[in-house]
Design a protein around this nucleic acid. Sequence first.
DNA 1: ATATTTACTTGTATTATGCAAGTGAATATA
DNA 2: TATATTCACTTGCATAATACAAGTAAATAT
Lengths: 138, 138
Amino acid sequence: MTKVKKRSNCPISQSLDIWGDKWSLLIIRDLMFAKKCTYGDFLKSPEGIATNILASRLHALEENKIIEKLDHPDSKAKVLYKLTRKGIDLLPIMIEINLWAEKYFSTIPEDRKAMIKEMKKDKPGFIKAMTKELEGLK
Amino acid sequence: MTKVKKRSNCPISQSLDIWGDKWSLLIIRDLMFAKKCTYGDFLKSPEGIATNILASRLHALEENKIIEKLDHPDSKAKVLYKLTRKGIDLLPIMIEINLWAEKYFSTIPEDRKAMIKEMKKDKPGFIKAMTKELEGLK
DNA sequence: ATATTTACTTGTATTATGCAAGTGAATATA
DNA sequence: TATATTCACTTGCATAATACAAGTAAATAT
């Protein structure tokens, strides 16, 4: 993917310039809710992202400081991807997408349904706990 | 645009299947915050959507019951686009995108900044008022 | 020493987007 | 009444993004 130019100063537009495509938020979902953190993990997700697209998205997200690359503790062959603070702060958006989807789609996986229940029960509490958890991953 | 197939049952993925592109949420922004409601209005937005893309997105959003077409009161030549309840319910997502963007982008238009201030001051109140306003447009 | 894993890159076909021009119905203007 | 203009699109074509298949190099396991 070539460099995306800023289309306008609108906050929605500027946000979409970074993660407004069919794949970026799925990578963020993996990092956020599924605790996936390697290239291979992302590839295995059910939507089936193509490997070159994954590479280009990871690159773009890193450039935009949404994620960062770290050494994987298990092996030098592995890379550990992690959400930055800026990436973790996408959590409220991700929560609202989940809540909207839960209202309008009938087919939602059971484990995610359980998580959505938690989100609804205590949204600020969920955000705080999840944020702490994601910050903790080092 | 040809029919988008469902990639998985994940609520994030299913949501992105509908509006996960660079343009759909900008149309929704126009309907939601700028009170634009005609094809020509959308075309005039600063991001400069191409006319064929606009047509295809409007068609897709209508098919997915996010928006609906109504007769324009002023003229038979005009079409009035309106958010459905499902579309209005995207408001919490749109709010969180605004808040995230306000935190991480330095260039935000003044009028939008004022609106974001309102969102932060009383989020449920903002949602309620805006929802009522959008429902009222008939 | 060899095979496998891991994180990619490269090449090519397909699909989507961007741009310019055109169309037909409705409305405004002369 | 005839003509120009507005409005909501459609069409054709160049360019860009995505999907799919295969390949690569470093690190690790056997």
